[in-house]
Design a protein around this nucleic acid. Structure first.
Length: 402
RNA sequence: GGGUAGGUACCGAAGCGGUCAAACGGGUCAGACUGUAAAUCUGAUGGCUUAAGCCUUCGGAGGUUCGAAUCCUCCCCUGCCCA
């Protein structure tokens, strides 16, 4: 019995491209007939230890495969991380040491299972050093012979860098080869990735064919744009929401995205049906603030549960709409009697230097006990009750003598 | 190996002997407004003291000069062209 189309549609929700859908349908049908789960590959580059919402887009698709009974094969690219994936980079990435990679891989796994089903029968975790470290130089040359320079340069990230006159090191060309070899070694049926991985993933197909394996089906997901609404979400750009962040942070950051980004986030980060998303993102039918609030709740709910989502939404409204103090006000103890405002700001980390602190005061961004201050030389008597120091909208804390 | 163009603050990019802490854009931060940490507008954006002042920055190391990001020498890194 081939799986009905509706199953495949649900599975492919939000995907950017499938190479090819017919092959996928056939492979799914064959798997179910043979009662053999598909091996679904996803490679992760542990060059940065934290998983953010952008990663969860593809992880979510992987989870849907798991839920249908297939096996997620997560490849920690510990070996490839020594090279650095050139994808989307204007510069060659730095290589990592083994210790860094190990630590990152560990964290990665912990965080990935916040989306993936950790059941060992549904999740297989491998490191590609397992097979890549055994390749001889001769093997490597043989692999390289399957690829041509022209195809390599077609790849848009190389193409752009090349045309822009930016450096490309030869070792970066090896990255797609290694990744393709991964697919052969784990006998992948399907490989998932962001659209920026299309080239790498398709190399896997070629290598598998060359090694007399059925070629993997490649499914790509759109790249999630980050908080700025322009660039792809990434740690290095700082426009991300990490899966381990607090409920309040997740909610607040979501509220800060530009309105035009909502539809994309609803589609890629929540399970809301398409019709509903359309209604939510139509300003005529739904107030944008309400839509965004809903988005924030959905996201927090996914990682912290419904109670936390509710709390975060309320806390946000209380703090930023009504201007109240945060529920859990951070308290700093200082062993000073009568410090100046500037010192206070530096002590609690609200300003990096005296000049910066002075600037903030001059700009009217600083208040003590909700009283805006204008004199940078002001001294503040500290008592046991302490004072409330506020800088801008978001930085606020209590300071007591102690 | 030869030729040639470059390396400037968080990023991009001007400046090419003093008026340069260094234009401009982005980012970030603050303020106003608001629908929110949206959008828009305004301002700030090396450090120390704030009045004037002082100190550290323009790939690295030396040098010329009263004075250099700007000139010279050597070195390191990168693009392009030729071989």
């Amino acid at each position: 019995m081939p799986p009905p189309d509706t199953t495949i549609d649900a599975l492919l929700r939000g995907t950017a491209a499938v190479y090819t859908r017919d092959e996928l349908a056939a492979r799914l049908a064959k798997a179910s007939a043979a009662r053999r789960p598909l091996r679904v590959k996803l490679g992760l580059d542990p060059s940065s230890p934290d998983i953010h919402l952008g990663h969860t887009v593809v992880l979510g698709l992987m989870r849907r495969f798991q839920d249908l009974g297939h096996v997620a094969v997560l490849i920690i690219g510990d070996y490839t991380a020594r090279i650095g994936d050139p994808t989307g980079k204007s510069k060659t990435r730095p290589m990592l040491t083994e210790q860094e990679i190990d630590a990152n891989a560990q964290t990665y796994l912990e965080q990935a299972t916040r989306v993936l089903d950790p059941d060992p029968s549904r999740l297989e975790v491998r490191r590609n050093s397992e097979w890549l470290s055994k390749l001889t130089f001769a093997d490597t040359i043989r692999l390289a012979s399957h690829m041509t320079v022209a195809r390599m340069l077609e790849r848009d990230t190389f193409d752009k860098r090349y045309k822009a006159g930016q450096p490309i090191s030869v070792h970066e060309f090896l990255y797609p080869l290694m990744q393709g070899w991964d697919s052969v070694c784990i006998r992948a049926d399907v490989e998932l990735g962001g659209t920026d991985q299309t080239f790498n993933n398709l190399v896997g197909r070629d290598f598998q064919i060359a090694n007399e394996q059925p070629p993997q089906i490649v499914i790509t997901m759109p790249i999630l744009r980050g908080l700025d609404g322009q660039e792809k979400m990434s740690k290095s750009l700082g426009n991300y929401i990490g899966v381990t962040e607090s409920a309040d942070e997740m909610f607040g950051k979501t509220m800060s995205i530009p309105d035009h980004l909502m539809a994309e986030w609803f589609t890629l980060c929540t399970t809301a049906p398409a019709g509903e998303i359309e209604a939510l993102c139509d300003a005529q039918r739904t107030h944008p603030r309400q839509a965004k609030e809903r988005l924030g709740r959905e996201i927090v709910n996914r990682f912290h549960g419904p109670e936390a989502a509710e709390r975060a939404a309320q806390e946000f409204a209380s703090r930023f709409r009504e201007g109240n103090l945060p529920a859990d006000l951070e308290t700093h103890r200082l062993a000073l009697e009568c410090p100046g405002v500037l010192d206070l700001m530096r002590e609690v980390g609200f300003a990096a230097s005296n000049s910066e602190a002075r600037r903030l005061v001059a700009q009217g961004g600083v208040s003590i006990d909700e009283q805006k201050i204008s004199d940078p030389m002001l001294t503040v008597p500290l008592s046991a009750d302490g004072i409330i120091l506020r800088v801008g909208k978001r930085r606020i804390c209590r300071i007591v003598r102690g």
